[in-house]
Design a protein around this nucleic acid. Structure first.
Length: 114
DNA sequence: CTGTTGACTTAGG
DNA sequence: ACCTAAGCCAACA
């Protein structure tokens, strides 16, 4: 095969970015947290914090990604307080040592720094 | 192509 | 420190 149109380049930029995002999230150490914006940046999609939220929202339920380590830049969980998702995420975080103070995580203490 | 949506972020009050 | 408004970006109808 020479320099022809190679059929082996179905690389979808958006899906590629999504895979890179997943890889980045998977790298967040236990006991640490990262913000949506921080992850968008690390995944090469600076400014697309909402896109990160979109990806997590559509994550398969059986996913092994540590999605619970992703919170807002202010240290709050993206889920509404008292909601099911809120407690689900909070329990997972506390189970690995991340404490919440008045519904917020101390970012200075738990923010992941690659 | 235009308008809407949302697991966001930042600047102001 | 809490609330609001505006900004932002990709996905979707």
């Amino acid at each position: 095969m020479s320099t022809d149109h190679n059929t082996s380049e179905p690389i979808d930029p958006r899906e590629l970015a999504r895979l890179q995002l997943y890889q980045t999230i998977a790298a967040i150490p236990e006991g640490n947290v990262a913000s949506y914006g921080q992850l968008a940046d690390l995944a090469g999609q600076t400014g697309a914090a909402r896109w990160v939220g979109y990806c997590l929202r559509h994550l398969p339920k059986d996913s092994s990604l540590p999605w619970h380590r992703v919170i807002t830049s202010s240290g709050k969980l993206a889920f509404a307080e008292q909601s099911e998702g809120y407690w689900r995420q909070r329990n997972l975080l506390e189970s690995e040592g991340v404490t919440l103070r008045n519904h917020k995580v101390n970012m200075t203490t738990y923010r992941w720094q690659p």
